[in-house]
Design a protein around this nucleic acid. Sequence first.
RNA 1: GCCGCUUUAGCUCAGCUGGUAGAGCACCUCAUUCGUAAUGAGGGGGUCACAGGUUCGAGUCCUGUAAGCGGCACCA
Length: 661
Amino acid sequence: MIDLIFPDGSQRQFEDGATGRDVAASIAKSLEKRAVLIKLDGQLYDLDRALPSGGQFEILTRDSPEALDTIRHDASHVMAEAVQELFPGTQVTIGPAIEDGFYYDFARDTPFSLDDLAKIEQRMKEIVDRDEKIVREVWDRDEAIAHFKSIGEDYKAEIISDLPDGETITVYRQGQWKDLCLGPHLPSTKSVGKAFKLMKLAGAYWRGDHRNAQLQRIYGTAWANEADLEAHLMRLEEAEKRDHRKIGRAMDLFHLQEEAKGMIFWHPKGWTLYRTVEAYMRRRLEIDGYVEVKAPQIMDRGLWEKSGHWEKFGANMFTCETTEGEELAVKPMNCPGHVQIFNFGQKSYRDLPLRMAEFGACHRFEPSGALHGIMRLRAFTQDDAHIFCREDQIEEETTKFVRLLNSVYADFGLELDSVKLALRPDLRAGTDETWDIAEDKLDRAARQAVNMEVERLPGEGAFYGPKLEFHLSDAIGRTWQCGTLQLDFVMPERLDAEYVVEDGSKQRPVMLHRAICGSMERFIGVVIENYAGAFPLWLAPTQVVVATITSDADDYALKVAQELSAAGLRVETDLRNEKINYKIREHSLAKTPVIAVVGRREAEEGKVALRRLGSDGQEILTVVEAAKRLALEASPPDVTRQAVLRGASPLQGEVGVREAG
RNA sequence: GCCGCUUUAGCUCAGCUGGUAGAGCACCUCAUUCGUAAUGAGGGGGUCACAGGUUCGAGUCCUGUAAGCGGCACCA
């Protein structure tokens, strides 16, 4: 007999060999009908599988959030069945559920076309209508290998061969179609429903290794119901509208062109945004005790060899030779330069922690396929800093850093989503003992500093040390890796960094490589998408447009613009001979935060009518009052906070306000 | 780098099975001075990504190259 404990706390006993369906049927016929899976002690099982033991028991229906992954997984199986019916000779490999949907990787000589997707989708719907029962079978390992080989499924046979001995080999059968799979699955193809859509075709390497054959991946999205599917498609549309490349063009922020691929041409408005973010970061760093430096862009090969970059990172470096026979490399990272500055003269333990920052322009040769708008470039600027410190300062510095990072993200309307710990890669410098210590230290520091679970990523660290990755989420829930903190025992050793301790002997400092934006360009890309171009006043490239109603107000408009810009605001005028409606529309579409309308009336009274983006009301103020208020509002969040701490107006000392005459 | 798709005016896009390029917005000119999301009329602008090929004839078909896009791999 097995004992089941139900969600309401009640307990019941069932015969050995009872299935989830039996239990559901014993409760209610209607429940049996709706049941698709069961959960036993936190684990999902097929509805028709004999329960392996007693425990915490729950029946899941199709609507249960926990069933969604299984719906997606089953959709991938239905897709594989459809593909093999339509395109005989295509081999199946793997097809998991992923966020929002599923994919399946196929091996086939001729590529699928977009038209094929429509056909496959159609056939999938037919398979759902067929209501094929999905049945779990346990197979003998050798028989399974022989079977899949005999039907030409070499990839499947390979997967089985690689399973550890003693692992139960399960095959799921739906209609005539079979697939090796761990399960669990829904009871029938009908339970998958039709709220799915095939989205895109892609190449993908077998087992994720670029040395292997390339397979054809078909991505789909699948949901419990039509409404959820619709909502998802709407979200995608929304995301597309926010695309920083689109907004960058529409708002005239920057462009990229063939002759400098992976590098940005910043236009005046975009550069204003950039400088605003940079100035903000500079203030934040200064208050947190960083010093700013600037190291050379190009340095001799010898230095890069010493640091280990030439060997470990050489394939990604831009190099050049002079006519005098020197070999040089454009810096892909800032660390060696900073160590040179650290090494200049003597450092004492009293100097530590030494936090050395640079807005460091780095160039890396990235594979052409990796480039993505301004998020992934060949030339980018890191908000980099290296903290030279003692081992016993690592935790404190990590905590301090994480606090700063969280505060910065919050100021841009972003939120820290997750933190990951990337561990030693195959290609690395330093001994295993050093790595043991570094990983352990960083792990501890992270747990101390970060208020959330830290996922471990084996093999993904930097070549000189383990890495904390900070992923942030934007306004519509997408995540990006920007911030990082890396612990490095290797670079100080290789580049001979030392400081003098109390007894006069010399010690090696530890280096913490850290960035909050990651790259200024990527961060600005995220910020653009986060605000969909409608920046808060302090970030907006153009903060106020003074628009005239008739040409009678032109002189007055110029005067108003002068007053506002004297108050530190970024102001433009629009004196064109156009209707005010036209101007309002145009500047609203351009996402200008404030439009200051002036007509004959305002000119006579010395006032302006302020209209805010997204509202159709207006506020009539004197020019002096408007300048004061807008300047206050346009004060960056950190400046405002500092002013509040000092108990002063944020305008004092930061932006000069001149009384209007 | 690999797989697939795309590339036509400044932007967004039409252009059927090959017959010599079009719209909307933007831009320029003129008129209009009009109080909170598009005033009207007129005008200019494209070796159809680039290089070959097939053809009497190529934006359209074929091959190659480049860039962009979606993934994979790589990564801030």
